[in-house]
Design a protein around this nucleic acid. Structure first.
Lengths: 114, 114
DNA sequence: TGGGGTACCAACCTCAAGGTGAGTAGGCTG
DNA sequence: CAGCCTACTCACCTTGAGGTTGGTACCCCA
């Protein structure tokens, strides 16, 4: 039992902790879910993700891009045109993340009713 | 596509966001994984989870208990004897969380090598 | 001529997350 | 009799996450 603990998910592997924190961060989750299955422009993401500030959206996108989960494609035109897409690893992350969010949604519903 | 976005995972359902944030919080993840499949005392958790402060361990456990994911059993003896266990929903959460952590672990490994 | 739109960057500020250290009960051990 | 142990609580302080504002470049539209 406790197969995951065997992965030494402690100070010995800070990279794992960091990556999990990025993927499961407040805005990281929302960005990944928003990009699931579609390409979006920056302004579309801003409109879609309710309550995110410009700073945090940029920061989150840059972090996820550095982690190789999100692909940024900029066309050097005026006005700027930038598109964001999930990479293959990014899609893997969403695939694992979505059930957790879905579970939380259903649980939040049943609890608030009860 | 984007089936999870259809769940209205935005300001309209703050409960879901909150629950996700609890489960995926820095110490929440570690506590849930540590309790996967076993009952542990407070001091055992403190030793097991590398780098956690007493304050954060208590706070995290109380939060997860309030969310109904962790069960706290105290025996009124001196010195105190308190045990923590996952509830059924708590175990569900770990089941969904573990693959994500496992994925992050493998990805962190391959990336740091490359 | 000037106002709006895009995708940012930089600086400043606030506030909450999180760390640190002390205190507590009371039996048990040396 | 003097600590030590557990599982905390409380008070204080620091750090950093995150919000707000202002600026940029350049074109288009009115």
């Amino acid at each position: 039992m406790s197969a995951v603990s065997d992965l030494q998910f402690d100070t010995a592997c800070p990279d794992t902790r960091t990556l999990v924190e990025h993927v499961t961060s407040k805005w990281g989750v929302l960005v990944l879910l928003a990009l699931d299955g579609r390409t979006m422009r920056w302004s579309e993401l801003k409109r879609e993700i309710d309550g995110v500030s410009e700073k945090m959206l940029i920061q989150t996108l840059q972090t996820l891009e550095a982690d190789g989960l999100v692909l940024r494609t900029a066309r050097p035109v005026v006005p700027p045109h930038v598109e964001y897409t999930l990479t293959t690893p990014g899609h893997e992350a969403v695939t694992l993340l979505a059930p957790l969010v879905s579970w939380a949604f259903h649980r939040a519903q049943t609890r608030s009713v009860a």
